[in-house]
Simulated scan of single mutants.
Amino acid sequence: MMDNKQVIDAGDQDKCYDYHQSANTLFHFMSELDYLLHSLTKQSLFPRYVLENVEYLKLDYKGQQVKWLLIPMLCFCDINLHKLSMHVGDNQKTGTKEGYGQYGIGLDKKWCEQMGLQPISYLNGNASQTEMLGLVLNQGLELMDPYKIDKSNENLYDFIITQVALSKPLRGQMKKETTEVQKNFHDEREWRFIPNLEGLTSPEFLNDVTTPEIMNLPFRRDLSNAMQAEKDTHLKLKINIIKYIFVSNLDDRDKVLELLSMNFSREEALEMATKIVIYDQIVKDW
């Protein structure tokens, strides 16, 4: 007969699966109120093409170094509320625009797991794992040209792209609009949603050697906007999995409340209103 002490009921098991050293919410922040309003109206988050610096992998394509890749993704941070100000705001000491914006949505982490979001791997430039990834990428770089894919190696191609899309150096450069900032990426505890673009017109990735246009902001914006038209790339939201709605100030809150009253039932609007967090107020208590 099984000892009752060895039996864990479903309720206790759920508690074991809660996060204790990290947040139970994943946060996605934006730089503009309009982005947040659009996401709430459409009840969706929309991946965008993001420049990723890959100099740490020492990639070479036909004698030219690949420094940047352009990859579609949605980025989230796994940071407890009281530490979010360092992620959201800009660097007050240096005056650099390092923050991701004071507008955002916090989503239930367990739901995010079910939707396939994945914590990324942080790579130490001095580690053998990083060297091996660079070697594999260099050997298969020809496969990474989306216009010259060898169908017989398609699974290898997909694996390489996925590994790159879910990896980042411990520290490095990040593009903010047209400027570059130095970041400690490991502090961001990042998770990503990578849309499935199979059968769609949007490219899975581009690099700065074969497509130097990716370094131009208007080009990246056009690609991201075009991907928004592909509905299968969206991360569809449900009211019950939204835990927080971040706005910068009281005026922003009023605009969100107006949008909720116009686009949701009274009950839904009231439920959503209780989730609004005003950054200017709460940051003083973090």
Rank of each mutant, 00 (worst) to 15 (best):
Q92C: 11
G95A: 04
T178P: 02
Q114D: 07
S121K: 12
Y147C: 08
K151I: 13
A127P: 03
L84M: 09
N91C: 11
I105W: 04
M86G: 14
P169K: 05
G172W: 00
Q114A: 13
H82I: 13
K168W: 04
Q163C: 12
T162W: 08
V164S: 07
T96S: 14
G140P: 03
V164Q: 13
M144H: 06
E180F: 14
S128C: 12
G125F: 09
V88Y: 00
K93G: 01
Q118D: 05
K176E: 12
L156N: 02
G125N: 13
T179K: 07
I161R: 14
P169Y: 04
P169E: 04
T162L: 08
G95K: 01
E98G: 10
M144Q: 07
R171L: 08
K168M: 07
M144E: 06
N91M: 07
M174F: 03
K93V: 12
K148E: 14
D90Q: 00
T179F: 09
M115G: 02
Q182H: 03
T94K: 05
K109W: 04
S121R: 15
Y157G: 01
P146I: 09
H82P: 07
T96L: 14
C112Y: 03
M115A: 09
G125V: 10
G101R: 06
T178Y: 01
K148F: 12
N155C: 09
N126V: 10
I105Q: 02
L123I: 07
Q102G: 03
K93L: 15
G172H: 00
N80V: 06
M144C: 10
I161C: 14
N153C: 09
Y122S: 10
G140Y: 01
T162V: 01
P146W: 12
Y147I: 02
M86C: 13
A127N: 11
L107V: 10
L166R: 09
D150E: 11
E154L: 10
S85F: 12
S85G: 01
G95C: 00
L84K: 05
N184L: 10
N124F: 09
N124E: 12
G95W: 02
T162D: 08
K109Q: 02
L137F: 05
N155W: 05
D158V: 03
L81E: 14
G106M: 02
Y100A: 08
L141V: 03
K148P: 06
Y122K: 08
L107H: 06
I105Y: 05
Q114S: 12
G106H: 01
I149G: 01
M115W: 03
M115V: 04
